[in-house]
Design a protein around this nucleic acid. Structure first.
Lengths: 250, 250
DNA sequence: TCGAATTTGTGCGTATGTATC
DNA sequence: GGATACATACGCACAAATTCG
């Protein structure tokens, strides 16, 4: 490889990527086979293979054994507004959006008591080992699994109250803000931490994706007068959603 | 490959991954060289290479040409506060943090005029083909490339003013808010869209990472009285940062 | 239904360039 | 300079899946 040039497999990958971006290779169409790439670009088998691997790692194409390598249709990620002002009704980060989405949304959930892990304890500012109510959610949209959520609430706050179980009783299924208001806890702040990482095999199994693909992780904490009253991790495949934050500037 | 077994390179990678997780191979220590892997596991050169590639793609190890393959220390993603109120000084999403980080941060940039692409035009609410000033940034921290940013400003707004070039003149290097204030444009809102996707090969080459790794993409738009005056894409490897948003609840 | 051709995925051996020690 | 190690590259082989006549 002469000085100043990039490796052959990156050059080939770049050319194919350009053709995909330009629409010359439309979604669902087949990439040239490895043999064709080899011939068209005058490169070896290895280079053609590596080039395909690069595009697969970038999520632009998808290999189907025995059939071919196909251009993936990248769904425009759906914007989800996170102003905070309208979080009423949102126990999950996206529940408001689920409700607004035309009634197609549904969810399953299950709660159990457990002891706070060090991580959860730090987020709720309680002691590790303190009792918490953990609730797992699986949100669907049109029957398709779209989002996982795990919520933790300190039992010292909600224990022996009507809202101890987030999804049961007269206020079951309502948002954190409403449920806390019912026990005279006024939620006034919301802290969200956004991160991304490759999806774990278990998560992607449930969500119907491929292990290793990007997921967005929103760690959300509801605060009442500076005290954390609920915290949750929300996991969504990154190609389905994008989060929009609207911030005032002074 | 006999039935029910996984490929040889995955078996080798799995064993090495276990040793890393168990601490047998501590951070900053060297993995067995390709030749040693070949001998120890009784596999071919290719399998040893593929196994290393798997671990590199997972971000667990890092290859240094001529030296060896080293176990990476996984950095706790650094929180970056995005309240919006203190965005003064932030031309890049993270510049405020760069400045606060103890002076280790530095950046390169380059500007050029071009015609707005349909995507940029939509974000700036101008016509495709209208002239814009595009500025690319590469931010470093301690010499290490950490973040890419591309900013677009409509020349209809800044053309023939002292702030046309974001990084030159007396206000060069200051934030969007300050520069716009100098031409009597009062930025009052900030819209941020957070998404994640696999990093492109070119991006990760510059950022010192591996193609296919998660990157966080922040699409930020500064607004003045509802009118977009600047928009930018910020790309960071997802394992380096997490974004924290503090939202009031009503 | 069968079989041949194609394509991906995996694996092997080797060679060369280049960075580091 | 020499030895080591990674990065790239070439050519080949075979299994499994798919496609198609």
């Amino acid at each position: 490889m002469p000085f100043g040039e990039q490796p052959a497999y990156l050059r080939v990958a770049g050319d194919l990527r350009q053709k995909i971006a330009d629409g010359v290779l439309a979604p669902h169409t087949r990439l040239p086979s490895q043999a064709r790439i080899r011939a068209e670009y005058g490169v070896s088998d290895t280079v053609a293979l590596e080039a395909r691997k690069v595009l697969m790692a970038e999520g632009l194409v998808e290999g189907r054994s025995g059939s071919g390598t196909y251009v993936r249709e990248l769904p425009e990620p759906r914007p989800v507004s996170r102003t905070g002002y309208r979080s009423a009704g949102g126990s999950g980060v996206f529940r408001q959006e689920q409700a607004a989405g035309g009634g197609k949304g549904s969810w399953e959930s299950g709660s159990s008591q457990e002891e706070a892990s060090p991580q959860v304890a730090r987020r709720l500012r309680i002691q590790p080992g303190d009792r918490v109510m953990r609730t797992r959610y699986l949100f669907r949209e049109g029957g398709e699994p779209m989002m996982l959520s795990t919520s933790w609430e300190p039992l010292e706050l909600t224990g022996r109250t009507p809202v101890m179980l987030p999804e049961e009783g007269p206020l079951g299924g309502l948002g954190v803000v409403e449920r806390m208001a019912a026990i005279d806890v006024v939620v006034d702040n919301l802290l969200e931490e956004v991160a991304a990482r490759p999806g774990l095999a278990e998560e992607m199994n449930v969500l119907g994706g491929v292990p290793g693909h990007c997921v967005l992780v929103v760690s959300r904490t509801h605060l009442a007068g500076g005290r954390p009253v609920e915290t949750a991790d929300v996991v969504v495949p990154a190609d389905r959603y994008r989060l929009t934050y609207h911030l005032p500037v002074r």
